[in-house]
Design a protein around this nucleic acid. Structure first.
Length: 303
RNA sequence: GGUGUCGUAGCUCAGUUGGUAGAGCAACGGACUGAAAAUCCGUGUGUCACUGGUUCAAUUCCAGUCGACACCA
């Protein structure tokens, strides 16, 4: 453990487990602020479908990185890392502990461990490579990568277009192999990091997901999605809760089917989140009802 | 009440001319360093309704029971 008196307390866990409420309680108890690490709550146009904290919740504790972007803004993990680090610098002047709360594992890891620096690829390059994918298929991308970076080619998720596009993008932009630049280096942070994971039994979690999706419909999800219809091609809207309602609005499926699909896709998302967080033993796991245990644990650990 | 059809995985269904069974979806497991609520990979989880009979062997053939549906009364 570092000698620094500053602590970043991470609260992670699957969607719908109850992170928002717990984090607010804890932030009140420790008298501090919350940084959100939720890659879809960044967007101000998406509220109901992302289960953003409501006005009442936001008024209790200062939240950062909620609704600071528009869905048409370009954004990525590296930008998040830099912005959070610079925000932390100023928050740690006022507070000894700050909470980082969310379900986006990659974003949390970028803040905690850092991410290798790559130059930003030109937007034209990205669309050029995407065109190749669309018109010539993934085989062509595989061929290109095998030629440009044979080392990465043998370890890459060969059928995953996103991985191939990214590697090619970096190779082309830098003129060097992706594998030579992706060092997976761990950056040192001048604050201590404490990681808390929240989880429930599967039946409890799945039941909460079902209830929350039903509640979203009641709260006006359809209207929210309808208002975004003309932006549907944007990446931010390639999101559970939005893509299914688009299909309903296209009259491709019934509302009932759309709701079922949202529940199913949310369950799968929750499972992927758990896979991410469980692959390290850095998290100390609690049930969301165990607020007292968490408070005690944090009080002890922060000393 | 009678006749007929059906009963196989969580769901929808296929199949076995008798050698204990397989698809889709769901589910489960995993990967993942600039799209990450994205993207990708892997895995059948089963008293073949029940009870008997025939047979070396029955999920398959036969009988009965139960259940579902349809038609006739």
């Amino acid at each position: 453990m570092k000698l620094s008196a500053k602590h970043l307390i991470v609260i992670a866990g699957p969607t719908a487990v109850g992170k928002t409420d717990i984090a607010i309680n804890l932030a009140q108890h420790f008298n501090t602020e919350i940084i959100s690490a939720d890659s879809r709550q960044f967007y101000r146009e998406m509220s109901i479908g992302t289960a953003k904290p409501d006005h009442n919740q936001l008024s209790k504790i200062n939240h950062h990185f909620i609704g600071q972007l528009s869905i048409s803004d370009y954004y990525n993990v590296s930008m998040f890392e830099n912005e959070v680090l610079s925000l932390l610098k100023s928050l740690f002047i006022k507070y000894d502990a700050v909470f980082l709360v969310g379900g986006s594992g990659l974003y949390i890891d970028a803040v905690c461990k850092g991410i290798d620096d790559f130059p930003d690829p030109a937007p034209e390059l990205r669309s050029y490579l995407k065109d190749i994918l669309t018109h010539e298929g993934i085989g062509k991308l595989q061929e290109m990568l095998q030629h440009l970076d044979p080392e990465y080619f043998v370890t890459v998720d060969i059928n995953n277009p996103n991985r191939l596009l990214r590697a090619l993008e970096v190779c082309h932009t830098t003129g060097q192999k992706f594998s030579e630049q992706r060092l997976n280096s761990q950056k040192n942070r001048d604050f201590n990091i404490i990681k808390i994971g929240l989880n429930l039994t599967r039946p409890e979690l799945f039941s909460r997901i079902g209830l929350r999706v039903d509640q979203m419909i009641v709260s006006g999800l359809i209207k929210e999605v309808e208002s975004l219809m003309s932006y549907r091609q944007l990446n931010a809207l390639n999101t559970v809760g939005y893509k299914e309602i688009f299909e309903f609005l296209d009259a491709k499926i019934t509302l009932q089917q759309a709701v079922e699909n949202i529940k199913t896709n949310t369950r799968r998302y929750a499972k992927r989140q758990l896979t991410w967080f469980k692959r390290t033993d850095e998290y100390k796991w609690f049930e969301p009802s165990g607020i007292n245990e968490i408070t005690n644990y944090l009080t002890m650990t922060c000393k």
